[in-house]
């Protein structure tokens, strides 16, 4: 029973939403779902946030290794909650924006979250280089094809591509690297993308069907609790 009702919920909701596509008056069900999801997600965050606090609190309490950093996490989390819930530094009143200029929340976003985010993102420059090096060392046909395509596109997007192949005769201009890069993007790249997308489309349908039919239901946990 504890498992049967959820299976029924999944099957009913899933079937209704599949059919809603073919029935225009039911179109708004999809939009309603996103609203439902947003509201459920807030409650779920109480569990997530609770887990965060619990994990770090236990670490501090038991003086596990690196517990000091857990203190930093807990202080940061609490600071943000206080700033946001009480709208510190921002316009007063319940309707004032919590992220208004001057609010503590916004200030911390600008000076802490934004630089940290962009720097993590920027690390990709180094990781792209190391991944390229690894791909370069791989000595099989697939890796070589990948590298050649990457090289053509990379050169094609820089002036170097034109400088290196600008001398090629007009009748063979397709072999000028910038033109070749455009062709690679528009033809073999497109073909590969399409086969991936078609496969994904079919895969999603089959997986969704398995979920709606209740064939795959490990996410609902065991019967005994």
């Amino acid at each position: 029973m504890k498992k049967q009702i959820p299976i029924l919920i999944t099957a009913t909701v899933g079937t209704v939403l599949v059919l809603s596509v073919f029935f225009p008056p039911a179109k708004m069900l999809g939009e309603d779902f996103s609203l439902f999801f947003d509201i459920i997600a807030v409650f779920a965050f109480f569990l997530g946030g609770g887990n965060l606090v619990r994990v770090h609190f236990i670490k501090v309490y038991r003086r596990k290794s690196d517990w000091v950093y857990s203190v930093v996490t807990l202080v940061g989390f609490t600071m943000m909650l206080a700033s946001g819930l009480f709208k510190l530094g921002g316009p007063p009143g319940i309707s004032g924006s919590v992220t208004a200029d001057g609010s503590y929340l916004n200030t911390m976003f600008i000076h802490i979250i934004a630089p940290l985010s962009s720097t993590m993102y920027a690390l990709l420059a180094f990781f792209v280089a190391s991944a390229s090096y690894r791909a370069f060392r791989a000595k099989n046909r697939e890796a070589t094809i990948l590298l050649i395509a990457a090289f053509v596109i990379l050169l094609g997007r820089t002036p170097l591509g034109m400088m290196a192949t600008g001398w090629v005769w007009e009748s063979l201009s397709i072999f000028q690297i910038p033109n070749l890069a455009v062709w690679v993007m528009n033809v073999p790249n497109l073909a590969g993308q399409r086969s991936i997308l078609i496969g994904v489309g079919l895969g999603v349908v089959a997986m969704s069907l398995r979920l709606i039919l209740g064939m795959d239901r490990t996410y609902l946990g065991g019967d005994n609790d």
Binding site: I40, A41, F46, G48, T218, L220, G221, G222
Partner: peptide, 18 residues
Amino acid sequence: RSLVLTAARETIKESYTS
């Protein structure tokens, strides 16, 4: 994501039980 936390816990628990 918090919802993934909940779903993942249920899933792993079920796997260990089975």
